[in-house]
Nucleic acid binder design. Structure first.
Length: 268
DNA sequence: CCCCATGTTCGACA
DNA sequence: GTGTCGAACATGGG
């Protein structure tokens, strides 16, 4: 579920009504989502603390508390954040619950691939070294081209999923980008023509912008003109060409594309 | 029962 | 060391 825009949405869910004084912390100590955290100090540090602000970068979130404390949240494959009215009824997959006087801020994750940890400092631990966001002016075409060269042997689909360069791109965004740019997901990253590189750069930013606009604030449904609404249905048709979509495993992930539009171009 | 899942990490191998 | 690939992680849903 959570890619760039979904993460932004969930960040906003917990941010509504800031600041929040935390009266009580409920957690599920043995859960795998705390594999990088010290559960006792997490409870101790957050109880009676105040949630002041929130940050999102790619698929990561950081919630800033008084005393330069940061709560890092990664949603993994199935994690979500909820902001529930009282009375709050605990679900078996609620692994961290921050109670305020009137709300329950919940981290819920059925598959336990998410992770939670605490850090202290002016910035969240490790965030000074993050790559530029997709919509940051420092994310440039040159940066993209250099990375495609470095990963030249890998299929372009696999390369777009690499968070070290494309923070926030996940499976559906990668497919959407390649479909819009008319690039076959299996094409080797190093064989893209200059025209394809330009188109790819443009569509990365366009999909990030569009996804944030539609999903980032209110979780709207993407329009049927996107690949998004057609990608999982058997017999789905490409909304641009009307031709059948196909699904293949590329870069280890199920990949949906339109063979009529997305053909491999070999560079001389 | 079988297969699949919007993510990351780790070990094997070239 | 560099880079790629598949399995593993834990659970629910079709």
């Amino acid at each position: 579920m959570p890619e760039l825009a979904e993460v932004e949405f969930f960040k906003n869910v917990w941010s509504k009504g800031l600041p929040h004084r935390i009266t009580r912390v409920e957690l599920n100590p043995g859960c795998r989502v705390f594999r990088k955290a010290e559960v006792a100090s997490l409870r101790e540090t957050l109880t009676q603390n105040v949630l002041l602000r929130s940050l999102a970068h790619g698929k990561q979130m950081a919630f800033g508390f008084k005393g330069r404390v940061w709560l890092h949240v990664h949603l993994g494959m199935a994690g979500r954040l909820l902001n529930l009215p009282l009375p709050y009824l605990r679900d078996k997959h609620d692994h961290l619950v921050l109670h305020t006087a009137r709300r329950a801020l919940v981290f819920r994750d059925t598959r336990h691939f998410g992770n939670i940890l605490l850090s202290r400092g002016e910035q969240p631990l490790g965030w000074e070294a993050l790559p530029p966001a997709l919509l940051d002016p420092r994310f440039t075409r040159d940066l993209l081209v250099a990375f495609l060269q470095r990963r030249r042997q890998a299929p372009i689909k696999a390369v777009l999923l690499m968070q070290e360069r494309f923070p926030g791109i996940g499976n559906w965004m990668a497919d959407e980008i390649l479909w819009r740019a008319r690039i076959h997901p299996g094409q080797k990253a190093g064989t893209l023509t200059a025209r394809q590189q330009g188109k790819l750069f443009q569509e990365i930013r366009a999909v990030a912008e569009d996804a944030l606009a539609v999903i980032g604030t209110h979780w709207g449904d993407p329009p049927d003109s996107w690949l998004f609404n057609h990608r999982w249905r058997d017999g789905g048709l490409c909304p641009k060409s009307g031709k059948p979509l196909v699904r293949e495993t590329i870069g280890g992930r199920t990949t949906c594309f339109s063979p009529a539009l997305q053909r491999i171009k070999e560079v001389p």
